[in-house]
């Protein structure tokens, strides 16, 4: 479904000059599995996901989503994905229903199919009580529900969750993780970025630990435990990051 090959991204920063956000990373995510990008803040997770969703353009390497190239076929790629991020907001002056409908129509879904799909999503995500609520009056949890409904409205084969539980209370975060797990059952390819070990441990089929633009290790959780001889994911995470920083004494700018 998603294949990144030698994916690189460099930024130019007025203060620090050129920054390497991603340094030739390779990963793949398949249908019916959750691929976790696990890394501290500033590791390059959001950059990778923004490239997959065609919002950013890579400076090197290739990424294909369901066979479409993110650079040369961005329009096709955008039809394949649904994007949920803690950074994205909802429109303050639109109701939940209007917002999901707007994106559904942008995806080219016509009535009455769109209405049926929205009814299903609003039931499924328990959003009927906020149907006519303006974005400005929604809580963080409500906004996140709208974001998920917005990403699912066109029933894409690929879903991207970027730090989606960030800022949510325990109950809402738990509900969101349940939704993600259920989406896997529908055969979706899910990329889930987080810096919370427990979430990755519970949810992800495949995990890639990202740090300073590099993938330090990747594989199924049991494989990682076996290869690195470490049962606790958190301990494994700290060990890999420490080893990487020790090996690269000259700090890599990210």
């Amino acid at each position: 479904m998603i294949h990144a090959h030698n994916l690189s991204k460099e930024y130019s920063d007025l203060r620090r000059g050129k920054l390497v956000a991603l340094a030739s990373v390779n990963f793949s995510a398949e249908a019916g599995e959750i691929f976790g990008l696990l890394g501290p803040n500033g590791a390059g997770k959001t950059t990778a996901l923004r490239i997959i969703s065609t919002v950013l353009r890579p400076t090197g390497g290739t990424v294909t989503v369901n066979g479409y190239d993110v650079v040369t076929q961005p329009s096709e790629v955008r039809h394949q994905i649904g994007f949920v991020s803690a950074n994205t907001g909802v429109y303050d002056r639109m109701t939940a229903w209007e917002e999901v409908e707007y994106f559904g129509r942008l995806y080219g879904i016509v009535q009455p199919r769109l209405r049926a799909r929205m009814e299903y999503l609003f039931d499924r995500l328990q959003m009927n009580d906020i149907r006519d609520l303006l974005g400005a009056k929604m809580s963080t949890g409500m906004k996140q529900k709208v974001s998920i409904a917005r990403a699912l409205v066109h029933d894409p084969p690929v879903l991207i969750f970027d730090e989606a539980t960030s800022g949510l209370d325990v109950l809402v975060a738990r509900a969101l993780l349940q939704t993600v797990a259920e989406l896997r059952q529908y055969g979706k390819c899910i990329v889930f970025s987080t810096h919370i070990m427990r979430e990755a441990e519970k949810l992800c089929d495949h995990i890639a630990i990202v740090h300073r633009g590099h993938i330090l290790t990747s594989g199924r959780l049991d494989e990682l435990r076996e290869v690195h001889g470490e049962q606790d994911l958190e301990e494994l995470f700290f060990r890999l990051i420490s080893e990487h920083d020790a090996a690269h004494r000259r700090p890599v700018l990210i």
Binding site: R78, I81, F83, N87, T88, L106, Y107, S147
Partner: peptide, 14 residues
């Protein structure tokens, strides 16, 4: 500022 631009950019709209 409101964080809605990124969502719009990742939508099919060119």
């Amino acid at each position: 500022e409101r964080g809605t631009l990124e969502t719009l950019l990742s939508s099919p709209a060119e």
